[in-house]
């Protein structure tokens, strides 16, 4: 039981996919302008991650090693399409707000990364738990970033005005450059709080292309960046 909890919570803090493993940066930056969009994006990705980890873990002995990446992509793309259609039908406003980024969940490195790094090697139950933890970690990171950007950038929280701050907003935080800035500061904060050795580079561990990336072979800058404890 202890192991299950540990597995679940590692995604939230110790191995947070966004702030520690530095995966899925694109949706994090793009969808953190408002808290409600961030939550929608996070939960949509979590749903896809849980389903894909479940199916890939079930099929892990069936999928031939050489064509595993295309197989994973098909599974993930199928679930993304399902989520896309459900959201279009039941949450049309969120569907419009997420726009292309909803279909871009397919190429979100968190999902492919977990399929490659975890679901392809572990049992079904463990993989689902891992997916829940990682998905919630992604949502949590998005939520933190969106809170900062929305409260200080627009003076609102989930569309509701925040008193006092409303009159002293920093609109640039809502712009593209504010996204980069808040993300950088947030990572620095996590480094400071947890006294982590700061990461020098973006990790290749979760990159779906890492297996056949020739840059990795030629340039040793990618080596030794595997996430610990997996």
């Amino acid at each position: 039981m202890m192991k299950v909890w540990k597995n679940l919570f590692k995604g939230l803090v110790r191995e947070n996919p966004v702030l520690v493993l530095l995966l899925g940066t694109c949706p994090t930056l793009a969808m953190s302008q408002s808290v409600s969009n961030a939550l929608g994006m996070g939960l949509a990705a979590t749903a896809v991650l849980i389903c894909s980890n479940f199916v890939i873990s079930l099929l892990r002995n069936v999928i031939p090693d050489k064509v595993r990446i295309p197989c994973y992509i098909v599974v993930i793309a199928a679930f993304v399409t399902v989520v896309e259609m459900l959201m279009h039908a039941f949450l049309p406003s969120l569907y419009d707000a997420l726009g292309t980024f909803l279909s871009l969940i397919v190429v979100n490195c968190i999902i492919l990364g977990r399929a490659e790094m975890y679901a392809s090697k572990n049992g079904v139950f463990d993989s689902v738990i891992d997916a829940v933890g990682m998905g919630l970690g992604f949502t949590l990171a998005l939520f933190c970033m969106a809170t900062v950007r929305e409260v200080f950038g627009a003076g609102t929280f989930m569309g509701i005005d925040v008193p006092v701050i409303k009159s002293f907003t920093v609109p640039i935080l809502k712009e593209a450059s504010g996204g980069f800035f808040v993300f950088g500061v947030l990572i620095a904060l996590v480094n400071k709080l947890f006294k982590r050795e700061p990461k020098k580079e973006f990790s290749c561990a979760g990159c779906p292309s890492a297996a056949f990336c020739s840059l990795k072979r030629e340039d040793s800058s990618c080596e030794g960046k595997e996430s610990e404890g997996v």
Binding site: E175, A176, F180, F181, F183, I187, N191, P198, E201
Partner: peptide, 23 residues
């Protein structure tokens, strides 16, 4: 830069400045 900013964080903050110029 300060220790906790070394590596990725400072890269992102400078990307913010480049993005600012594009706006």
């Amino acid at each position: 830069p300060p220790k906790c900013f070394r590596g990725v964080p400072i890269t992102l903050v400078s990307a913010a400045i480049v993005a600012l110029s594009f706006s």
